[in-house]
């Protein structure tokens, strides 16, 4: 297994109290596999990714428990300097907003080339040549000239391509993409997503795709992990999940996608708001918003039941949910 996260807990200590952002996340990604992590804002998707990569702001963040095995080593037990060498080279990240995630005062060539200078000890000149190659690889027109340009001189889609090129520079084994297309125009979203999927196949790398967009997920993901209040509430192969969700939260998400055959009817929305991470509800965190909630949901936290051999649901009534 390329990446295996076991029972990860992350909390943030703030002036108002302790926010429990990640509460026992376990998941796996195999080489060449795409795992989509789905959930509302504040469900702990990005925090999990940052903890895995080791770029969590600590303090206020704190990893209170868990293990992150990457290629057989527990990243959380590595020294910072060893961990740094893994970061970027073997395990890379694509951020949401490329305009703010790229350094505004350095040319894109410098920022791309930096990967080769730091991790491979290349000369600046060779690194610059590799930067041009990378820009061609992500199909940026006129790469040789544009390598000297600054991030603000590119369009949103082109900037995100540069972000992708930077993450893939050293052909990492695993890439975490945190909402890579959210900041883009809808027309550009598909292009960028296709490019990412294509490069993933070419390099046979693992991909963790963090998103709240179910439309993006269906085409590219192999597996889906649905997160709610810092836990994975359902984990399943993509087709099985779309066919019949085994958790009422997943069902709610699927029902809230606009569909042509329901045109004219009111769009379903999950009632209520995501929980406050400082006061996560007792029992099943989803029970205040759940249409199927019963007394047991308020008191007992459901474990991740095995629905199938590669499928799990953290719902007491997953059977009923699956039957619809």
């Amino acid at each position: 297994m390329l990446l295996e996260v076991r029972d990860l807990h992350v909390e943030f200590r703030t002036r108002d109290g302790v926010a429990r952002a990640v509460n026992g996340v376990s998941c796996q990604v195999a080489a060449g596999e795409t795992l989509a992590v789905l959930g509302e804002s504040g469900s702990g998707k990005s925090v999990t990714a940052q903890a895995v990569l080791g770029i969590l702001d600590m303090p206020p963040g704190r990893i209170t428990a868990g293990e992150v095995f990457f290629r057989g080593r527990d990243l959380l037990k590595l020294k910072e300097d060893e961990r740094r060498r893994v970061r970027g080279a073997e395990l890379a990240m694509i951020f949401q907003d490329a305009l703010s995630a790229l350094n505004p005062v350095l040319s894109v060539g410098d920022q791309l080339g930096e990967m080769f200078v730091v991790h491979r000890g290349m000369s600046k000149r060779d690194a610059r040549a590799r930067a041009v190659e990378l820009m061609e690889r992500v199909r940026i027109p006129g790469a040789a000239q544009r390598v000297r340009d600054y991030p603000h001189q590119f369009s949103g889609g082109m900037r995100q391509r540069i972000m992708i090129a930077m993450a893939l520079a050293l052909e990492p084994a695993l890439v975490i993409a945190d909402e890579p297309t959210t900041a883009l125009d809808v027309t550009v979203q598909a292009q960028v997503m296709d490019l990412l999927a294509e490069l993933q196949r070419a390099y046979t790398m693992g991909l963790v795709l963090i998103t709240h967009d179910l439309g993006v997920v269906a085409d590219v993901a192999d597996r889906i992990a649905v997160m709610y209040a810092g836990r994975i509430v359902e984990s399943a192969p993509v087709h099985a999940l779309y066919k019949a969700p085994a958790h009422p939260y997943t069902r709610g998400l699927l029902d809230s996608i606009p569909r042509l055959d329901r045109k004219g009817r009111e769009l379903y929305a999950i009632k209520g708001l995501p929980p406050n991470l400082m006061r996560i509800p007792s029992g099943c965190a989803f029970h205040p918003r759940c249409p199927m909630a019963r007394d047991v949901c308020r008191t007992d936290e459901p474990p991740l039941h095995a629905v199938d051999e590669d499928r799990g649901s953290a719902c007491h009534f997953w059977r009923e949910c699956l039957d619809g």
Partner: peptide, 8 residues
């Protein structure tokens, strides 16, 4: 954050 994520 990107610079840190790049492993610099």
């Amino acid at each position: 954050r990107t610079a840190i994520a790049k492993g610099l």
